[in-house]
Design a protein around this nucleic acid. Structure first.
Lengths: 205, 205
DNA sequence: GACAAAGTTAAACAAACGTTTAATTTAAAC
DNA sequence: GTTTAAATTAAACGTTTGTTTAACTTTGTC
């Protein structure tokens, strides 16, 4: 999975355009123009527009996997939650536009390659969360009876909501720039999700 | 805002197709075929494909507004949260496919009419949540320092995640049918969000 | 420097797109 | 029954779509 300069130009151009116009809303000519290459180069290198999206996702997907090794070093269950959330949000946020596209595309159509890879990713991250929670329950730090699927959904959903309602939230939070918004996600939003999960896992009744 | 039978056929056909294929992924010929009408009827009645989406949204948007009158009758702050969440989820869930499309479309493009109407809707619901929380804080039932925007985002995001990751979650939760999934959202997921908000608002530190 | 392979280009391809036209049918009004 | 407007149709409109072609240039190898 190594690409030459021109291929990377195309992948990055596609990433930018898909994020603002969607997959169907972006033409291969748009991509070619944005990447400063000839239209035919996209089919030459990637086969088709669909395969470009597949390749694109496979290129980025490893970045979204939660690192298990790092978590294994942490003993305290509450700290584990914090680190897990922090790393998850950071990885999604660093490629947030891609994550946006993938979520939309896999929710709309049967994209075999993407759906399969995306499914594996979610399954991995779900298992990591599950084990962190179960460990905390075993230690007596967390209350039982909380479905990890729901907690996982809450984390992913809250983050995604910040992508999908970007302009509304930027206005409401009085955030001027793109970079400040990204920083807000990695600080305030991350802390909110950490607090929410911990509140939930220690909540009586 | 009253439509004849044929117009409603078109709106319903569009709703079904947009939900599965997206707006750009659906052609006016698809819609015409699904609604059993001539292609030209869509432009005849709605002007254009874009205006069809606008009309479509305006047609449904009142259903998504949280009813303030009902909440005013409830005194207990915790009960207010429960009712507010229950009604929000119920309304979104009853038109969940439309909500799916609108979220995607308004996140991708500058759709003036939709964005404006959607913005008003979110603003209304956000204000309702804010007042419920502030009331609870004034009563001493809730801890202060929780931004209503984040709680609102959490609720909407968690719900939306259940739309966007439909097949993954259906598989993980071992839910066989569409109706059972809808029921799960209105029971288990609703309770989870209610619990999460209450845990958050009463959480120490 | 000849040769083969890879890279690159403009042009053309058929198919699908949203929309409009002009002709025809239906419905309502008098 | 005639007239007028609304509804409906098949066909065509000009664009744009993703993809392919065939000619050309660059690059690396012997």
């Amino acid at each position: 999975m190594d690409f030459n300069e021109k291929q990377i130009d195309i992948l990055l151009a596609a990433e930018r355009l898909f994020a603002t116009k969607g997959f169907d809303g972006t033409s291969v000519r748009d991509i070619a123009h944005e990447a400063n290459v000839n239209v035919a180069m996209i089919n030459y290198y990637f086969g088709s527009k669909d395969k470009l999206l597949d390749t694109f996702f496979e290129w980025r997907v490893p970045d979204f996997m939660i690192n298990v090794d790092e978590l294994a070093l942490i003993e305290n269950a509450l700290d584990k939650i914090d680190t897990m959330v922090d790393r998850s949000i950071k990885s999604m946020n660093s490629h947030r536009k891609l994550y946006h596209i993938i979520t939309i595309e896999s929710s709309l159509k049967q994209r075999m390659l993407i759906s399969a890879a995306f499914r594996k990713l979610k399954l991995h991250n779900l298992e990591v969360i599950s084990s962190v929670i179960n460990e905390g329950v075993a230690q007596g730090v967390f209350k039982g009876g909380n479905d990890p699927i729901l907690i996982h959904s809450m984390m992913m959903g809250t983050f995604m909501n910040f992508q999908m309602n970007y302009s509304f939230l930027q206005e409401q939070l009085r955030i001027a720039s793109d970079t400040e918004y990204a920083r807000y996600i990695e600080t305030t939003l991350t802390q909110f999700i950490q607090k929410t999960i911990k509140a939930l896992l220690t909540y009586e009744k």
